[in-house]
């Protein structure tokens, strides 16, 4: 069984985001970029499925700017077998929308026929939490979102989902889409020999037009601003002071 793992290049989760003062967006020039943390977990889970003999081949795919090839190299260095890069230009400030990404992924699914698509539950830049669900809709297949545990056997995937009330276990017929939450696993670091090996792995590059997908946006971004800042509070020296403040000043107890 092939496993398709979409990965996105995003601002590193440790970087403090700077919003441009002219309202045009977040400054991504000269900022550390990395693989979306949820996607790393998806890659790791795919590797474990291959190590346990369930997956035969892992294909990492990224839709994004030319430099997104670096996150594909990371996926290959972690152990993915080959990569497909759909290049969407050079400007990191242009975020291809989940609908367009899902359409591109759908085309790749039609070509590659994976048994499973494993992907992050959300990208930490646009926080949309949508691409996996959209892809599953286009594929007309089952979906398990926000999964923290996954078992695949006999043409079925059983996933434990982290939901508002606790956990929900669902079973899906393959092929299906599973989006992963943070607790699924601890992703490995690529080893030096594997980084070297990754350079020789197959790496295909296409444009969205090669797949016949129109990626023009459906949402116009009118402006982007900083959220209102909280004003600095005060440091109190005793629990008594705290109780007094909560009672008399804030009136919350």
């Amino acid at each position: 069984m092939k496993v398709l793992v979409p990965v996105k290049r995003v601002i590193d989760y440790n970087v403090k985001v700077r919003v441009r003062t002219d309202g045009s967006g977040v400054d991504l020039a000269n900022v550390k970029m990395s693989m979306n943390p949820f996607d790393e977990i998806a890659v790791e889970e795919a590797l474990r499925l291959r190590e346990s003999g369930i997956a035969s081949e892992i294909i990492a795919v990224s839709v994004g700017v030319r430099k997104a090839q670096l996150v594909l190299r990371t996926a290959l260095a972690m152990g993915a077998d080959r990569a497909i890069h759909i290049v969407t230009g050079d400007d990191p400030h242009v975020d291809v929308e989940p609908l367009a990404v899902a359409k591109i992924l759908h085309r790749i699914v039609q070509q590659e026929q994976p048994g499973l698509v494993l992907m992050g539950k959300q990208a930490i830049d646009n926080d949309l939490n949508a691409t996996g669900q959209m892809l599953a809709g286009l594929m007309a297949c089952g979906q398990a979102t926000f999964a923290s545990e996954l078992r695949v056997d006999d043409g079925q995937a059983t996933a434990t989902r982290e939901v508002d009330g606790g956990l929900q276990v669902v079973q899906l017929t393959l092929p299906c889409v599973v989006t992963v939450d943070l607790r699924m696993n601890e992703p490995r670091y690529p080893s030096l020999p594997n980084i070297r090996k990754a350079r020789r792995k197959p790496f295909a590059v296409h444009g969205p037009e090669d797949l016949g997908v129109d990626i023009s946006p459906r949402l116009n971004i009118l402006h982007t601003v900083e959220p209102p800042a909280r004003k600095a509070g005060e440091i109190l020296s005793t629990v008594d002071d705290l109780v007094a403040k909560l009672r008399d000043e804030a009136e919350v107890i």
């Binding site: 985001v17 977040v26 949402l219 959220p227």
Partner: peptide
């Protein structure tokens, strides 16, 4: 909100 609430985006849908 985007970027974990570090920015607020105003979007207009054409759908």
């Amino acid at each position: 909100p985007i970027y974990a609430g570090n920015a607020i985006q105003t979007v207009q849908s054409i759908d």
